Simulated assay, not measured.
Amino acid sequence: MIIISKPWIRIKAENEDEINPCDIISGLTFLGDDTSPNLTNNYQDLSGQDGSLSTYSNFNRTVVNARFWLHFKDYYDLKLAQHDIFRLFMNKKLMRIKTDAEPAIVKFVRSGNFSVEPVVENANDAVFSIPFENPSGYKFSLLRSDSLYTYDEEGWQIGMNLPNGEDLVYRHTVPQFKIYNASDIPIDPYYQRHDLKIIVKFNGNSLQLVNKTNGTSWTYNKSSNGSDIIVLDGINTTLNGTPASANTDYGNLVLEKGWNDIVATGATTVDSTFSFPFIYIG
């Protein structure tokens, strides 16, 4: 027997529990969603020169169209369902959504304007779409790199660019190691404001982390006895929760797609954790 699973969508608003709206609103069925990347290429025209000079490209916000079917008994049942749907989705909050098609990949969205009306007059069914606005233009892994396998199958799926037969480790206590970035794009916390946290403890006069794959680096110029928790959060550094960027060279690391060769120097011992969500396009 072939078992066909029923599509589902789960949403999680800020500081709220994750829910399936179809479990809450009677007669509501999720039909699926679709979206496409929104890439803008920018050019500069030079006087007297044919063509245009390519300057830069960037991903812009996208719209995720989630389709629903609502079955109701009568006009009064429809009015109650409309109120529940609008109250749930049109709340001004940033919401995390995931679906059965990509259970380990999420999008952070806000609802756009939509209506819920019968397919024809006096019908007992409505088919409608909610245009969720995705301001980042990205999709993200449900879990961060350092907790990828915490929930077994909930944390990964086919299509996440994960290598077969490779152990992906994001905490290391040796001075030379590899970090795997399964994203579709490089992780760049400076120019693209991507989420990358590097948590380190070290013993020594200073610490430098260098990504030999692309030459980016970060140096902490003060000594530590191995008990301090030093965090490079994007481009900002903290020492035991207190701002400490002044103790650094104001550098940052960029992670290329795939494997990155990282080297730690200047410390006698080092414990480093790379924590970031994988970023996907589409």
Rank of each mutant, 00 (worst) to 15 (best):
W156K: 12
W156V: 15
M160K: 14
M160Y: 02
N161T: 10
L162V: 05
G165S: 06
E166F: 11
E166Y: 07
D167K: 11
D167W: 03
L168R: 12
V169T: 14
Y170C: 12
R171V: 14
H172F: 13
H172S: 07
H172P: 10
T173Y: 15
V174E: 12
V174H: 11
P175F: 14
F177E: 05
I179V: 15
Y180D: 10
Y180N: 12
S183M: 09
S183K: 02
D184W: 15
I185C: 06
P186Q: 04
I187H: 07
P189A: 14
Y191V: 02
Q192F: 04
R193M: 06
R193L: 13
R193G: 04
H194V: 05
H194E: 09
D195V: 02
L196V: 01
L196I: 11
K197C: 11
K197M: 06
I198D: 08
I199K: 03
V200T: 10
V200S: 04
F202K: 04
G204Q: 06
G204H: 13
G204Y: 13
S206L: 02
L207N: 01
L207E: 01
L207C: 07
Q208K: 11
Q208G: 09
L209A: 03
V210M: 10
N211G: 03
N211Y: 03
K212M: 10
T213Y: 06
N214S: 13
S217N: 11
W218V: 10
T219L: 10
T219M: 09
T219K: 14
S223G: 15
S224T: 01
S224Q: 11
G226Q: 13
S227P: 06
D228Y: 00
D228A: 08
I229E: 14
I229Y: 06
I230Y: 00
V231P: 03
G234I: 02
G234H: 00
N236R: 13
N236I: 10
N236F: 11
T237D: 04
T238E: 04
T238M: 01
T238C: 05
L239Y: 15
N240S: 09
T242C: 03
T242Y: 14
P243Q: 00
A244L: 13
S245D: 09
A246V: 05
A246W: 12
N247F: 03
T248G: 03
D249N: 15
D249S: 09
Y250V: 08
Y250E: 07
G251S: 05
G251T: 12
G251P: 07
L253T: 13
V254N: 06
V254F: 00
L255K: 01
E256W: 02
K257W: 03
G258L: 02
W259G: 04
W259P: 04
N260M: 13
D261S: 10
D261L: 02
D261T: 10
I262V: 12
I262D: 08
I262R: 00
I262H: 02
V263T: 14
T265K: 06
A267N: 12
